[in-house]
Design a binder for these strands. Structure first.
Length: 208
DNA sequence: CAGAGGATAAGCT
DNA sequence: GCTTATCCTCTGT
């Protein structure tokens, strides 16, 4: 388990930033796929009108959000899956949505799942789950365990973390404008980005 | 049982 | 660039 996921002094916003550069890995019978997290969004619990657990809402679908920090919360929206990492304690159902990754291992498997190439493989929350084969079977599992986990041995460091409004949160008062979306500035896999990506993809040197 | 929601892809302009 | 179909889960009528 990554140490920052079990640190009760960190806010969900801080965890969302810490997750940038972490390696998300899926291991199954098909093979190993992995990618560096380049975009996250913080959903800060019962007071956050954009959060599923807003106002203490609790349904069978949301049960994973009420589990311990580090639990994976996967849900389906329209025909797509979204993957989140639960933060803090069971009393505070908060989570970080993983919105985009930069492919690292298993690119050919990504291409097979997505029927596409390049940045289209993983530049969106529904795209990366399809690329890695993440399904409801991964819901409620822990993020330090097979088959879907965050590697603790490898991490990259963003040169600059860009803050912006969360995607798709209209008519939610100040929550609509809250800067709770974090991305690696200049990384080509960040969703809905414009302009030229940076040559180094926005990373400092890799740490092993 | 209609409607909305943390989205995507295809098709059009 | 914008519009539309997609067809899961939950809520409110």
């Amino acid at each position: 388990m990554l140490s920052f996921l079990k640190d009760p002094t960190l806010t969900t916003e801080q965890v969302a930033k810490e997750l940038l550069g972490c390696l998300l890995v899926k291991e199954d019978e098909i093979g190993i796929t992995s990618g560096w997290i380049v975009e996250t969004e913080a959903y800060v619990g019962v007071q956050d009108e954009a959060c599923h657990s807003y106002n203490g809402k609790r349904t069978p679908r949301l049960e994973s959000m009420y589990k311990k920090a580090g639990t994976l919360y996967v849900y389906q929206m329209h025909t797509h899956h979204m993957v989140n990492i639960v933060t803090r304690t069971s009393d505070e159902p908060q989570a970080v949505l993983i919105r985009a990754i930069e492919p690292y291992e298993g690119v050919s498997i990504f291409e097979e799942h997505r029927k596409r190439k390049g940045i289209e493989l993983t530049n969106g929350p529904g795209k990366l789950t399809k690329a890695m084969g993440i399904t409801m079977e991964d819901n409620g599992t822990e993020s330090d365990k097979y088959p879907l986990y965050i590697a603790s041995q490898k991490k990259r460091v963003p040169n600059l973390i860009q803050k912006s409004k969360r995607i798709g949160i209209p008519n939610k008062g100040h929550w609509t404008d809250a800067l709770l979306r974090y991305s690696v500035e200049g990384n080509p896999y960040v969703s809905r980005r414009k302009g030229k990506p940076m040559n180094d993809h926005g990373w400092e040197a890799m740490i092993h």
